[in-house]
Design a protein around this nucleic acid. Sequence first.
DNA 1: AGTTTTTCTGGGAACGTTCACAGAGTAAAG
DNA 2: CTTTACTCTGTGAACGTTCCCAGAAAAACT
Lengths: 340, 340
Amino acid sequence: MAGRNAGGRRATIHDVAAEAGISRGTVSRVLNDEPYVSATARQAVEAAVAKVGYVRNAAARNLVTQRSRAVALIVHEPHSLVLEDPNIGNILIGTNAVLSQADHQLVTLMIDSQRDSDRVVEYLRGGFVDGAIILSARTGDPISDAIAEMHLPASFVGHPPDAPDIPYIGIDNKSAAEAIVRRLVATGRRRIGMLASGLDRDSGQDRLMGFATALGDAYDPRLVVRHPFYSYAAGAEGMAELLDIDPSIDGVFAASDAVAAGAMDVLQRRGISIPRELGIIGFDDSSWAVRCTPALSTVRQPAEALGRRAAQQVLDQLSGTVDFERDLILPTEVVWRESA
Amino acid sequence: MAGRNAGGRRATIHDVAAEAGISRGTVSRVLNDEPYVSATARQAVEAAVAKVGYVRNAAARNLVTQRSRAVALIVHEPHSLVLEDPNIGNILIGTNAVLSQADHQLVTLMIDSQRDSDRVVEYLRGGFVDGAIILSARTGDPISDAIAEMHLPASFVGHPPDAPDIPYIGIDNKSAAEAIVRRLVATGRRRIGMLASGLDRDSGQDRLMGFATALGDAYDPRLVVRHPFYSYAAGAEGMAELLDIDPSIDGVFAASDAVAAGAMDVLQRRGISIPRELGIIGFDDSSWAVRCTPALSTVRQPAEALGRRAAQQVLDQLSGTVDFERDLILPTEVVWRESA
DNA sequence: AGTTTTTCTGGGAACGTTCACAGAGTAAAG
DNA sequence: CTTTACTCTGTGAACGTTCCCAGAAAAACT
């Protein structure tokens, strides 16, 4: 029976050593690709490993190396919203790709309550992971502080203004917002409002700032409607409110595609034609953008690349690389479709 | 500095023992809530733990107990589709809740390629987890076989027809499909087609069978359009095809809400009025269902409960409970809205 | 041939826990 | 007062690795 030794237990390094007629130490060296191993020994070990069906005991290895070869991805988001945010999926893909390449396991941790938060801090302190990637942290986040305090190698994807001194990856939300809003102005829109979300993060704040900057003197704070989440519902509610505030509005910048989709739904129900009577733009270039009718003009975020870079930053810290690039800002791209 | 002992290393059980003036064994007993510990000892240990900032070393514990206190959630889905499927998120919530209650960590593993698949098998064999929950496995899935072979406690959420002997939780897809299609017939639809998806799983197969059963003699295999995925795109493409096959079609059963949403988009573009000219129904009661115009009639899956039960099944196997309920079928509910 | 350097191997020690066992103290039963 | 049972504590051993040191063997120099 593969993977079991005579006693019926899992095969250990001792079983491999016995099978190969070689010492434990040498087997370990082969397993870890260390130098100073003869070709004969290497072959014998490989054959023995295959024969007894050996796989390393992770716990034993972790115990002695004081490493777990796992990295946490901490998702700060109500569970239900995770599925609405297309970036998270892509960030996950990028992170997973880089880590698995480096033989590390990604452990996804979701935080939806204070209790979750405490449990995660405990988990991190328990040495279950060697590093962490923190997604969409909010201001005053206790986990970020705990990570900084215990000097756990980590990386932020986007970071709150009050974040501790941890490397981060992000996009220039302000410039991206500015660019897209500016072209909205250029196409002749005069009364432009914003559906602002996520104002407890840098992303939300910066998009709002970019909006204000792009409008310059034409910026009217009364035309900004705020909502805590980047959700469809936020867009639907916000748009209704915006129409109440000023029915003559002819341009809208939604803080995300999901928000824009909610807004477009309201507009359509009220018979307001897009883009003829009102131009609307989103942010993310998620699947929402192409599903809308008409298709949504938006900003493309390099989400997978964000994930890759974040993972790489953590691995660099782990390997003791000192001169890795920290605090990276990745470029975005404006995608023009039919909605504005 | 909390959590470090004199040498600058993390505090161990020995540090706690020394601080409390008590032996290692007793400290361990307190930590594990074992009986036969005096109140004095217990208090002394608790104070010492707080003082030196002790947290258990997971690796050492796992090594000796041969347990990891972690359970894998294996998601068999292209990464990008994970975000389209609303059930996955809710299953995740349920699973996470039960496991964290039992002081176990959930590790989410995504499988998108053969390479991922091999890595995951290796991971499972490595003893990183004590059990596994397998989501949406397809026929001929190698991971299921590996799990069965190594006797890893596990549970399927939905299971392929050729699945090995592993407990499972699911819903009665056939009866649910039958129920909803039957009422579509009752409302006077005569030419009813189906947009079938996921036919390499039990869910897809059973929904198709339910459809055929409900129609009885009226079942026309030419009105079934097949697509591998439960996606929006599948619905859009399939609906166009269905209209080509028979323009007089007046009822459609979509295998999921996402599929239905894609189909409705095509119908709206062609000016076909719902539900006047054509009735359409979905499956899942996801956020798609309420976002559509008109809102979609559909089947509600108890996704969170599925997750909870699956987690419970794994925990039961872990604790050696013999008479736990295996092979559970949870009830569904038809939700009538405006689309049919 | 003798010396130094390099390559390769074996085995003791350690990592931080839990477990099992032995024994001490205390309460209950005869 | 003795026996029995129960409660509580300390300690050695084990879990399966990696690390490190000592030394053997081989290779490269004088």
